[in-house]
Design a protein around this nucleic acid. Structure first.
Lengths: 217, 217
DNA sequence: ATTCATAATGAAACACTGTTTCATAATCGT
DNA sequence: ACGATTATGAAACAGTGTTTCATTATGAAT
């Protein structure tokens, strides 16, 4: 494409099987395209992410994007994975606490904050923006990785005998579904007022803690 | 369309405002169009509902649909309201029970069944299919009407002193968010296996009952 | 009944979308 | 240096929601 620095021919006169300079360049290009798509998405929402718009921003024909990602779904998948990384970082930024109740409360708050600060990513990941795309193995695993803190905390609670359930995933999903339900009803406009939604969310977190971690409160 | 219709000239002088035969015809036409859209939706999913496809089924030009509904969003809104009616009927079909715990359990099951039997409607109402459209006053009220049984049951429980919360809407939203969260994660492919999802759902219902109706169990 | 302004009609066009084609250009192995 | 691939990218294709506009039909007034 246009401003493509000519391959500094890694040249490797004879080496045959390694990611060629060309390929590395393609990888870089892919990252740039994802970044362009992400910036459009965060500024104008997921529905504004069209192949043409991304191509225009990259000053390249749309065909390039199809060559690199196969389809719009391929690009959506990368945005999905990007969102998983961001969510994971969000959870990692929450300081661990010995008190599982408080830790869980903070993680819940972080999940809410993520849905507010990265609404477009949230909609792509869990809200069905880009209806093209349904999660498969790789993306589901990325979510699991992102939810790792939740899984860890629940696993600990089970080990400590605080929870009668034996399957941590099951418990995490129960929590996740409740938090997601509130957020999604809010984002969908069914609970319009944000403060009402947040109140609902906080009550849910409290109830969940009360249900699963029957320590104090 | 073939048989045209005319608005009752609003110039008032003689013709006072009452539904004319022509207007009734238009109303009938609207109902037919909604029915056509609904049948396409239930057979091929919400994304298959295009103005052209509906017009083709009605053997009329697309302009007619725009004249009657203004936009696709207008048609989507009618499908939304249709879904609210169906959900309302679903809840009404659940026999009342003196035992609020059992009644609530059955209503929860009915909500799950609705999401399975009318998945397309569910996606239009709560899943963000037809991203065009966001609920407003009228549609939000339709949902409230549909959730009337839930509101009634919680109001009763509050009166009986079973729930410390004072706002029934708040409690209903808490329940709704949890049920919706599980269903939506399932429909979104994040909890793929249906039996796993249902198990999650049933556990949630039990937990909700345990949280709010701390009678038996 | 015959005008005549007004409103409904509906085929075609517009502005988008995701995606594919295909002649051209560049690249690569020999 | 050459011949066989492969990458390119403007243009086209098929679809979408929506609007235009010449034609037609209508309803009220003469």
């Amino acid at each position: 494409m246009h401003n493509s620095s000519e391959m500094p021919s890694i040249d490797g006169r004879k080496v045959t099987t390694y990611p060629s300079a060309k390929l590395q360049h393609t990888e870089m290009l892919k990252l740039n395209i994802i970044e362009a798509a992400a910036s459009i998405m965060q500024e104008h929402g997921p529905e504004a992410v069209t192949i043409r718009r991304v191509a225009e921003k990259m000053e390249c024909p749309t065909k390039i994007i199809y060559n690199l990602f196969g389809s719009k779904e391929g690009l959506a998948k990368r945005l999905f994975l990007e969102g998983c990384k961001l969510l994971s970082l969000t959870f990692q930024a929450v300081p661990e606490q010995a008190d599982l109740t408080l830790y869980l409360r903070d993680l819940g708050q972080a999940y809410w904050d993520f849905s507010r600060n990265y609404t477009s990513y949230y909609m792509v990941m869990f809200g069905g923006a880009f209806s093209e795309f349904k999660p498969e193995e790789e993306t589901l695993q990325a979510i699991n990785t992102a939810l790792q803190q939740f899984i860890t905390i629940i696993t600990q609670a089970i080990k400590q005998g605080l929870i009668s359930e034996t399957d941590p995933i099951h418990v995490v999903n129960l929590i996740w579904a409740t938090l997601h339900g509130t957020i999604h009803l809010h984002l969908g406009g069914h609970i319009q007022d944000e403060r009402t939604a947040k109140l609902l969310y906080d009550t849910s977190v409290t109830n969940l803690i009360h249900t699963f971690l029957r320590s104090d409160n």
